[in-house]
Amino acid sequence: MIDFKTIVLIFFGALAVSSAVLVVFLRNIVYSAFSLIATFFSLAVLFIFLSAEFVAGVQVLIYVGGILILFLFALMLSQQLSQKAVKLSSTKLLPAVLLALPMLGIFLFVIYQTDWELVQNIQMEEGVASLASLLLDKYLLPFELASILLLGALVGALLLARPGEK
């Protein structure tokens, strides 16, 4: 009998894929922005099922609370809202699909054919503290470089978004 856990897992997996389809194929850009919420949130639920709760929290915090608001602000500022539904040119759809579907075929073939050597009984060290200590002793350099990357992104984006100078 499929227990409740797998029902929820399959539901959020399907929600992620279907809202991603909506993001791509909806004509009104603001509708696709709002359906991005469903994608990001269902991905966070999938992270929780993969016992990565800190990554799920950061995913909701940054993607839903940050990047999506950034997209909505950009849509507001670039007057994208007044056009009710832009006509999507199907001329370029064919090459895009012709490229993407064989790629999907290759992915699925690789996923189902290769036998990944799986760890039998998975005992992950639960909890965020083990993630934190791993982050700070093995991945210390990328952690410090991330702050420099953020500084560069901040200065660059502020320079670009400063009105007035042509």
């Binding site: 894929v17 991603a20 994608t39 699909v97 999907l104």
Partner: peptide
């Protein structure tokens, strides 16, 4: 894989 292909299509 599905998300990846949908992203490339977009």
């Amino acid at each position: 894989a599905c998300l990846f292909t949908l992203g490339t299509i977009a």
